[in-house]
Amino acid sequence: MAVTEIDSSAETSGTTKAASADNRPRRKTKIFDHVVLWLGVLLMMGPIIVAFTTSTFDHVTIHREGMQFGWGGEFVETYKNVLYQEGGFTGEVTGLLMTQNSLILGLGFAIGKIVVSMLAAYAIVYFRFPLATFSFWVIFTTLLLPLEVRILPSYEVVQQLGMLNTYSGLIIPLIASATGTFFFRQFFKSVPNELMEAARIDGAGPVQFFWDILVPLSKTMMAAIFIIMFVVGWNQYLWPTLMTTEEGYFTLVRGIRNIMQQMIGADIPEYNEALAMAMLAMLPPALVIIIFQRMFIKGLVEQEK
């Protein structure tokens, strides 16, 4: 009896059964997926949220009770202080000024890198000159020589050029980029050669071809590299610390440390302000990524050709 029942039901509702059986494990994995995702979100966002909530308390509370999870009510006061209060040794540097310095460094770093590496890649891919491949690999090997390795000679050069405590001294020594050159080289190589030939027949010279054809085609690629490089530039710490001694050139990232350090002594460190500054320092890179996110992914996965 039981056997026939199973048989008949398998016959009549075989398809629906298979479908629902298919569905159940899929829903299970869906829930599992979301649990994993939420864990990831918690892990990544947790510290930031705690840092933010803590920054709304006053520093005495933080010193006494540690990190806070609630809303401290000191939000406006703290952030106003961080942005506008003149601090530092000379008492002339504000959070706003440091934000501005960071922006100059981040933008100069990213734009400079894009310009230099695009031009280098253009030369390597489209012009036949002696040792072209060799020079590419020389550029490429500079990946093995990050700033930290060559910091003394770099400092020496910048110092001798009289570029200490200038924006150009902060930015220019950093803008040569092997990674950028490599990315653009790969991209240019994937642009069909016929485009260049068509442009030649259309009477476009090397500069025109670069400007009229290659630059517009590279837009998404440029956006992707801009995001990466802006964040890297914004987060520079070691190089600005060496290059600039005047507080008027301090960046946000350095400012955080400054707040913590200057208060050490009899006073309680202004934990809340340091945390608030960290929040501020995180904001622009996050905004850049949110705004350019779509172009970023487009630049990495597809090319408009």
Binding site: E194, A198, A199
Partner: peptide, 21 residues
């Protein structure tokens, strides 16, 4: 002479149209 100065016009196999224009 450069291609542009030869008074020729070419049609390519993959068309070679400028994709962004």
């Amino acid at each position: 002479l450069e291609p542009a100065d030869r008074n020729i016009a070419m049609v390519f196999q993959n068309y070679a149209l400028y994709p962004h224009m």
